[in-house]
């Protein structure tokens, strides 16, 4: 037996009935990126790199972070209404494999569905302003979000289920290194050829980009 319906139900309740988790997911997963999209559309601007981040792998990881809280059933992280069901679940024997696989599948489906919904809503917003997304493009987005959710939840699951502090520290550090990699702006900085206040503004942007890229280079020792 690889899938336990009770654990699945508990996980869904834990994810969906905790007001704090819901607020977090609603704000960071939907309000911020869709707000950014609408602001850009109303002002005729293009999608920023931050927006791309929030609607891509980083956005999925933000959603997964909160969904994966309390995976091991620690009472301090189970503040939601689903938490109290866990002792009952554990009062009968379940195998470790069953627990892990059920958690992984359930969290992947919830996280992937939320991230895919966010991407679809963004496409719908863009549609009313003249942006076109083909059916194949939309399908690719949805599949990509589920794959992102699957791989991220697998990593988080392994990190949180293993209570060894060294293992946890290494895995959390690895996660943040990955996160830094995702947030380094994919641009090279030009030499501004303008004068006055504009030059000052662009110089400030240049310093910020240079700094983040230097940090990225430091971590990855790449170009």
């Amino acid at each position: 037996m690889w899938f336990n319906k009770s654990i699945c139900k508990f996980t869904v309740m834990s994810a969906c009935l905790d007001p704090m988790k819901l607020i977090y997911v609603a704000l960071l997963g939907f309000v911020v990126p869709i707000g950014m999209k609408l602001a850009a559309l109303f002002h005729g601007a293009s999608d920023s790199q931050t927006f791309e981040m929030l609607t891509g792998k980083v956005g999925v990881s933000f959603i997964m972070m909160v969904l994966c809280l309390g995976l091991a059933g620690n009472s301090t992280t189970q503040s939601g209404r689903g938490g109290e069901y866990l002792p009952l679940l554990f009062s009968r024997p379940i195998s470790r494999t069953e627990y892990v696989i059920t958690k992984w599948v359930t969290i992947t489906i919830i996280g992937g569905a939320l991230a895919a919904l966010q991407n679809v809503l963004v496409c719908i917003c863009g549609f009313f302003f003249g942006e076109t997304t083909s059916a194949l493009g939309l399908l690719s987005l949805v599949i990509e979000r589920f794959l992102d959710a699957g791989i991220l939840s697998a990593g988080m699951l392994l990190a949180m289920l293993n209570k060894h502090p060294v293992f946890q520290i290494i895995s959390i550090c690895a996660f943040y290194v990955w996160m830094i990699g995702q947030t380094v702006p994919p641009v090279s900085v030009a030499g501004p050829q303008i004068e006055g206040v504009d030059k000052l503004a662009l110089d400030a942007t240049k310093i910020m980009l240079d700094t983040s890229q230097a940090m990225g280079d430091l971590v990855f020792a790449c170009d």
């Binding site: 005729g44 999608d47 791309e52 863009g126 003249g130 942006e131 076109t132 997304t133 994919p186």
Partner: peptide, 23 residues
């Protein structure tokens, strides 16, 4: 009509182009 900065995804570039064309 529009500016796109950085190495964006194919989807972002396609959206950018279609918006410019439609507008």
């Amino acid at each position: 009509k529009g500016t796109l900065v950085g190495n964006s995804s194919s989807m972002a570039v396609y959206r950018f182009l279609t918006k410019i064309i439609n507008q």
